[in-house]
Computed example of a mutant assay.
Amino acid sequence: MIAVQVTYKVQADFAEENKSNISAFLADFKGMLASRFLYHVYIKEDGLTFVHVSMYENEEVQQQVLNTASFVIFQQKRDESGLLEAPVIENLNHLGSSLSLVK
C-alpha cells in the first residue's frame, strides 16, 4: 500500500477555484478503480491550506489515478496560481485502517 499526504496553501482569490477544480477530479475519481484507492481532500480553518491524503493499492493504480486528465489540469492550475506555500509531499507508513483497499 502507498499512502501520501500533500499540503499546500493557495492565495485567497484562488481558493474557490481550487475547490471547484478539486470537485472536478473527485467526480472523475469516483468512477475509477473504487476498491483500489482512496482519495480525501481537507481544508484547514484558514480556508487557504489544503491537505490531500491518498492511499493506493500499488504504484500502477497510483499512476492511473494521478494521470487522470482532470487531476493533471487541477495540478497545473494550482501550481500556476501563485501559491503561498508550495506543495509538501509526505509519504506515510500505513499502520491500519477501518477500510480495506485489498480484497
Rank of each mutant, 00 (worst) to 15 (best):
N93H: 07
Q76W: 09
R36Y: 05
V51D: 00
S70Q: 08
Y39V: 02
V72C: 09
R78N: 11
T49P: 00
Q76R: 14
K30M: 08
D28L: 04
I89A: 10
E16I: 04
V53S: 02
S70E: 06
G31W: 02
H52P: 00
N21W: 03
L83H: 09
F74K: 01
L66S: 10
Q76M: 13
N58E: 08
D28S: 13
G31L: 09
K30R: 14
F50W: 01
L66Y: 05
V65Q: 06
R36M: 03
L95D: 07
V51A: 04
L26T: 03
P87L: 07
H94P: 10
L92H: 01
E85A: 15
F37D: 00
P87H: 06
D79T: 07
H40R: 11
E85G: 07
Y56M: 03
D46C: 06
F71D: 02
P87Q: 08
V65G: 03
S35D: 15
I89R: 11
R36Q: 11
T49K: 03
E59Q: 15
R36S: 08
F25H: 06
S23H: 14
G47F: 04
N91M: 08
S23C: 10
S23V: 02
S97L: 08
L83P: 05
E16V: 07
R36C: 04
Q64G: 04
N21K: 06
H94R: 13
E16N: 12
S20Y: 11
S35C: 06
G96Q: 13
E57V: 05
T49Q: 02
I22S: 05
G82D: 08
S54M: 06
V88T: 15
L83I: 04
M32G: 03
A24E: 14
T49V: 01
D28H: 07
E45L: 05
L92Y: 00
V88F: 10
M32N: 02
I22P: 00
Y39W: 09
H52E: 05
S97W: 10
N91A: 06
S98V: 15
E16A: 13
F37W: 01
L95C: 12
Q64M: 10
A24I: 12
S35Q: 13
R36E: 12
T68Q: 13
K19I: 01
D46M: 09
P87C: 04
I73C: 06
G82A: 11
V51I: 14
G96V: 11
